[in-house]
């Protein structure tokens, strides 16, 4: 098991936002975490990447307990994240943003190889490589955030709302790329409001409601589950 979360609890001030979440991600999978606004999806991501301290439970990654590890050290262990809101560095060029992804890596030849791989996945980023990150369109920033997370060479790639704010055609495109990244060997945990796309691409999924996991299953199972259909897929 690559990622194993057991009874995870997290406090925002005095309010408990996650009430004991358990989930796991196997090597090579795409796992989708779906749920409404405020269900705790982004909070779960922040707990996994270490941006927010947890108040209970444990997070095991690649065989070790990382529950109390600093966020920057989790990156070195192999947890890469494309954060909510993309987090593009506005004053850095596209190329510098991508280089930031390789901040902890030393092998220049290896980095160059990954950069070529990212430009191959996102030719648009190559066209814009000298442009400041802040001047990109929403879709381009999303590509940059995903590409930059890949530059950390993650064992587990966390994607927080990759489809947010994108036109339907671009959503389709970004999910195709996510599938391609997975086929090239990267395990993915994906948080999405676009449940349709996420579940049809994912091997397995979890449904999060107000800080609790209420359902789990394969992508197809959840996609055809009546309750999920009604709540998240907009069909009665």
């Amino acid at each position: 098991m690559l990622l194993e979360i057991d009874n995870l609890k997290l406090l925002y001030g005095r309010i408990e936002a996650l009430h004991g979440i358990s989930l796991h991600v196997e090597q090579g999978e795409i796992v989708a975490l779906i749920g409404a606004n405020g269900a705790g999806k982004t909070t779960t991501m922040k707990a996994i990447s270490g941006l927010h301290a947890i108040s209970g439970g444990s997070i095991r990654f690649d065989g070790t307990d990382v529950s109390r590890l600093r966020a920057d050290l989790r990156v070195i262990r192999g947890i890469g994240q494309s954060p909510e809101g993309r987090g593009v560095f506005p004053g850095m060029t596209v190329l510098e943003n991508l280089e930031m992804g390789a901040y902890t890596r030393r092998d220049k030849a290896d980095i160059a190889k990954d950069l070529a791989m990212v430009f191959d996945l996102f030719p648009r980023l190559h066209e814009r490589r000298k442009q400041a990150g802040g001047t990109l369109s929403g879709g381009e920033q999303q590509m940059l955030a995903v590409g930059r997370a890949l530059m950390t060479r993650p064992k587990l790639l966390l994607l927080d709302e990759p489809s947010m704010g994108l036109a339907p055609k671009l959503i389709q495109q970004i999910f195709e790329i996510i599938t391609r990244i997975n086929e090239q060997g990267t395990t993915i945990l994906l948080v999405e409001q676009n449940a349709q796309q996420a579940l049809s691409r994912a091997h397995r999924g979890y449904v999060l409601e107000t800080g609790r996991i209420v359902k789990e299953g394969t992508g197809q199972e959840l996609l055809h589950d009546p309750a999920v259909k009604e709540a998240y897929l907009g069909v009665a």
Partner: peptide, 24 residues
């Protein structure tokens, strides 16, 4: 320099900088 890039990253977005492995 690399360290300089780390400084600029933290200045522009400290949380994202941590996700790049920058020790804030």
């Amino acid at each position: 320099t690399r360290f300089g890039k780390g400084i600029r990253a933290v200045a522009q977005d400290a949380n994202t900088a941590a996700l790049m492995g920058v020790n804030k």
